[in-house]
Design a protein around this nucleic acid. Sequence first.
DNA 1: GCAAAAGTGTTCGGGCTACACCCATGA
DNA 2: TCATGGGTGTAGCCCGAACACTTTTGC
Lengths: 231, 231
Amino acid sequence: MNPYYPLEDRQLLAVDCVIFGFDNQELKLLLIKRNMEPGKGMWSLMGGFPKHDEGIDQAAERVLKQLTGLQNVYLEQLFAYGEVDRDPGERVVSVAYCSLIKIEDYDKDLVKEHNAHWRPIGDIPDLVFDHRIMVEKALKRIRRRARIQPIGFELLPEKFTMPQLQSLYEAIYQKELDKRNFCKKILSMKLLDKLDEKDKSSSKKGAFLYQFNPEKYQELLSKGFYFSVEV
Amino acid sequence: MNPYYPLEDRQLLAVDCVIFGFDNQELKLLLIKRNMEPGKGMWSLMGGFPKHDEGIDQAAERVLKQLTGLQNVYLEQLFAYGEVDRDPGERVVSVAYCSLIKIEDYDKDLVKEHNAHWRPIGDIPDLVFDHRIMVEKALKRIRRRARIQPIGFELLPEKFTMPQLQSLYEAIYQKELDKRNFCKKILSMKLLDKLDEKDKSSSKKGAFLYQFNPEKYQELLSKGFYFSVEV
DNA sequence: GCAAAAGTGTTCGGGCTACACCCATGA
DNA sequence: TCATGGGTGTAGCCCGAACACTTTTGC
């Protein structure tokens, strides 16, 4: 079969995907009911086995799509889990991936068809194997990313209000923020264009709409700017 | 063989170790000459295959010991590399680990016997496969760790001088630091005990010796303190 | 006119940066 | 006495934290 490496050391390698979603209100985690033994019927992350002709990043994308219908999700590699007994069925090393998406951007019916479920992060059921540990680590990673990269804007409608943006950060960090300081900080980065329109759906007075300006962001990046939101 | 998972998806899994060392002067990388095809004779990180009954962290430790004689090295998992073609011999997914050690703490002869070599990080030869990429990522990780954790003190003699500590940080970040600000910052954390002795080996005046105080560190940690050195 | 959400400014303190001179000593 | 490396202090600035009242408008 192969000229170089020993055959007896081959392992079962898996990928697992930790997908967080924002639905304009709270942060949720996507879970499925595991459909194979061991642990059949338990809540689980979306996992599967890479093919021989497939990079692990691609495998994670494929597995996610097969199990939930989601595609074109930017997956970031999280960590490799390689304890001998982490899967009681067999020794499996798993590389976990994570992402944070806007739930409404993706086909909800498709997700439902696949029997995948969004659960609030404050109410996560018991998960199979060490998936809970993966979720905790993913949450930390997502929080770090949100602090240092402008991923927040991608989770809101194209035009959004300051209170909306603030709620998003509050959902991610599960922490209340001071609106004056938050607003000052965000606007001081000069990444947003203030529009003349107001959104009146959530108050009588109405809140001004803003729009993320990717060109400005690119320009600032090239000047050594670092995005940063304190929390 | 196994009741649960498909046999055909088994992969070759590897671990690779990126070991940086400090010799009281500069930062070095440990390399070996690869002793198997493909790439035999090329400079390489220390790599090998986990056994079925061995966690990947343990595998990394074992591989490192087998190839260099080093043991009791704290290895941190770095990243998993899973491109299909990263190893021209066969599809191998590799989990990389990294560490930063005090070179003199370990048996130099043993390292030499194993044909392992310390190379200055400014002068790293071509490496096999994607090992260079691993090294770059490891360097970033080590730098982050040195910024937010007091690992610096472990790389110096138990008693050390401020100039020594500063040189260490300058070696890690390849950047000159202002001694007044550096000193102020370090001492302001109150993690060091100033001793009454001086080290006269590198100057006529002599420099005061300091000692890291782990109890103080633990105490501060429990009060919500975060170690941080700006660079 | 009132309830509910939006919007806005100031003060304070801490920490980082930049910067230059004196000290101790062995040769 | 001089060369070498060690040691120290200050002023300015920026940024984050804390904090409360006014505005708008639909009901």
